[in-house]
Structures are given as structure tokens and as C-alpha cells.
């Protein structure tokens, strides 16, 4: 570990800064409230995405992943990231290169061409992990006491996302990946109820390059998850990954469209990234949490209307 536990290098990835910037906005704001400083990683790139680029060429995936890690090594900070795909890539690249000297030597030969070297001095952390293990439920709970006047009182369908817990070996959840509860515990601090629903830990369908190449197949996973969430009477879907988030938000509109003959009624469940929910619970406004859609901009998220949730929490702005 790179020592400073109230300061991290913020790795943005692609989908958050370039498609779902309100996740970046909400996470930065919430971390500031808990006095955790997030330092920009200047010139960082795609992680590279494990489902596609790792599937095309493992060596390139290691080399470009290692370059991203060297940016945080120069800052002397552990990486905080908000995406399960980035987590899967950087966690495994970092581990592989720390353990395997031969692979590290080869990767560093490539990195030498741009004047960089992987040293293996930092750790990779998901923001769910940082909130759960570093800030901790107690501190967040205390903060909610000074937060909202009215409780949030929503029924949540938490979607963990595959690479938050799997492969379990390198991850900080005591090898639990069949039936974890940490994410539910974390979001229930908001005063909401986290629901059990059928096949809760199933994949959203976006990963592995499936959304890119076989969209209908990927959306059929999403359809099944949405049916199970609806059966459990979910008010909101909670994610910890922007690609799952995109798949439930934009994907919901697509499911309603391409499977209209297969589904009994169109789905309409708003999707929140978990820091947006925590932010609301500690008294931040829907606007600060990026829940209010721009009236001018067309063809931008959220694609699934946020109105039902805003009405329910009495903040219909």
C-alpha cells in the first residue's frame, strides 16, 4: 500500500468521463464530504477494457494497463476507481506484474520506449471497497443523521456486477462471490431496503465484448434481470459500475424496444450509481448528485427517466 489513506489517485476509465459524467460528479462530491482527496491521473487512458482488449491481446492489455499504473506510482498514491471493468483490468495487471518477474521484464521493455517503468508500489481499490473498508458503515451512518429531513425509503435492486467480486482470489471480500452482502449493507445505510430478487448476482450482459458484437444477446440478459427486479417491486436499480449502469439505463430503453413482444409491459426503473444514493442520504441535493437531466441536451443519459425516484423522495425538481 502506498501509505496515504485519505488520498487516492482517481482513475476515470472511459464510460464515466465520456458518457456518464454524473457518476464522476457525484463520487467526487461524496468523497470530498468524507475528506478523501482524489488526485487526477493526468494522461491516463482506457484501462484497457478486459472484455475486449484483453480478449484480443493479453500482452497489450498488460502493457497499457501497466502504463496507467505508473501514473499513480509517480504520484505515490493507490488508485481509486469507479468501474468494475477498470477494476478487473488494473487489479489483475498489477497483481500479475508484481508476481511474475519475467512478464514484468517484458512489459518494462515496451514501457521503456515511452520512458516509463512499472515498479509495483501501489494498490488498486474500487470505490465500493474504499467506502466499505476505509470510510466504513459507521462513519457514513453518523453522517446520515445530519442529512435528510425525510428518510429515502426506497426499495433497491442492487446489481453487484461480476468483476466487483470475481475472480474472488484477488478481491477484498473474503472469497465470497456466490452470495455477498457487503454492497447491500453499504446502500442500506441510506435508510432504503435492499431487496432479494431472483438471480441477483447474474451478469448484466454488457461485458466480454458481448454488447459490442452481439447486442441482442447482451440485452436478453438485461431483460431477464429487469423482469426479476420488477417482480421484486424495485423502485431503483443500484450499480457500482458505469458499464452495468449503461446497460440498465440505455439498455432498458433498448429492451423495451426490441423485446416489446416478449415483455408484458415496458420497464421503467430508474438507475442510480451507489454514490448518488449515499450522497442523497447524507443530505446532498439531487442536482449535486447529477440526478437532474439537462433540459437542453438531447440523446444523453439518464435515458430511463429519473422522475419516479425524484417524486418518491419528494424532491421532484
Amino acid at each position: 500500500m502506498a501509505s496515504n489513506d485519505s488520498k487516492f489517485a482517481l482513475f476515470l476509465g472511459c464510460v464515466i468521463p465520456n458518457r456518464y459524467p454524473f457518476i464522476e460528479r457525484a463520487t467526487r462530491a461524496v468523497f470530498e464530504k468524507f475528506k478523501i482527496e482524489l488526485v487526477d491521473m493526468k494522461g491516463a487512458s482506457c484501462c484497457p477494457a478486459p472484455g475486449v482488449f484483453r480478449g484480443f491481446d493479453i500482452e497489450t492489455w498488460l502493457v497499457v494497463g501497466a502504463r496507467n499504473i505508473t501514473i499513480a506510482e509517480e504520484l505515490g498514491l493507490d488508485i481509486a476507481l469507479m468501474c468494475n471493468g477498470c477494476y478487473g483490468s488494473l487489479l489483475e495487471v498489477n497483481h500479475t506484474l508484481k508476481e511474475d518477474k519475467e512478464k514484468r521484464r517484458k512489459v518494462n521493455e515496451h514501457l521503456a520506449k515511452i520512458g516509463r517503468e512499472f515498479k509495483g508500489t501501489i494498490e488498486i481499490r474500487h470505490v465500493v471497497d474504499i467506502m466499505y473498508h476505509d470510510i466504513g458503515p459507521e462513519k457514513i451512518r453518523n453522517r446520515t443523521k445530519y442529512g435528510r429531513k425525510t428518510p429515502l425509503n426506497l426499495n433497491l435492486a442492487v446489481h453487484y456486477g461480476c468483476h466487483l467480486t470475481k475472480p474472488a482470489k484477488l478481491r477484498p471480500w473474503d472469497m465470497e462471490c456466490e452470495n455477498p452482502t457487503f454492497f447491500d449493507e453499504l446502500v442500506e445505510i441510506s435508510g432504503c431496503k435492499s431487496l432479494n430478487y431472483k438471480d441477483k448476482f447474474m451478469c448484466c450482459g454488457a461485458g466480454g465484448g458481448v454488447r459490442g458484437a452481439f447486442k441482442e444477446l447482451s440485452l436478453d440478459y438485461t431483460r431477464e434481470k429487469l423482469e426479476n427486479m420488477t417482480a421484486a417491486k424495485a423502485d431503483v436499480i443500484i450499480t457500482g459500475c458505469p458499464f452495468c449502469h449503461l446497460q440498465f439505463d440505455l439498455g432498458q430503453v433498448e429492451v423495451n424496444n426490441i423485446f416489446k413482444d416478449k415483455i408484458s409491459a415496458p420497464f421503467n426503473i430508474p438507475v442510480l450509481y451507489f454514490t448518488q444514493l449515499i450522497g442523497l442520504a447524507i443530505g446532498m441535493t439531487p442536482e449535486e448528485m447529477g440526478l437532474i437531466k439537462s433540459p437542453e441536451l438531447k440523446g444523453v443519459p439518464p435515458f430511463t427517466p429519473m422522475k419516479p425516484v425524484l417524486t418518491k423522495i419528494g424532491d421532484s425538481a
Binding site: P17, E24, K42, G43, A44, S45, E59, T60, H110
Partner: peptide, 21 residues
């Protein structure tokens, strides 16, 4: 964002690496 998008020299670094591998 403060990524390759803001830093053209970083974009070049990526291209150098993708050529190298």
C-alpha cells in the same frame, strides 16, 4: 477529462505502445 483527451502527448504514448506490441 484529464485523460489522453486533455493530453495529446499521452495519446502518442498509447500509439507508441500499441506499435511496440
Amino acid at each position: 477529462p484529464p485523460t489522453t483527451h486533455q493530453y495529446p502527448e499521452a495519446e502518442k504514448e498509447i500509439q507508441t505502445l500499441l506499435k511496440s506490441t
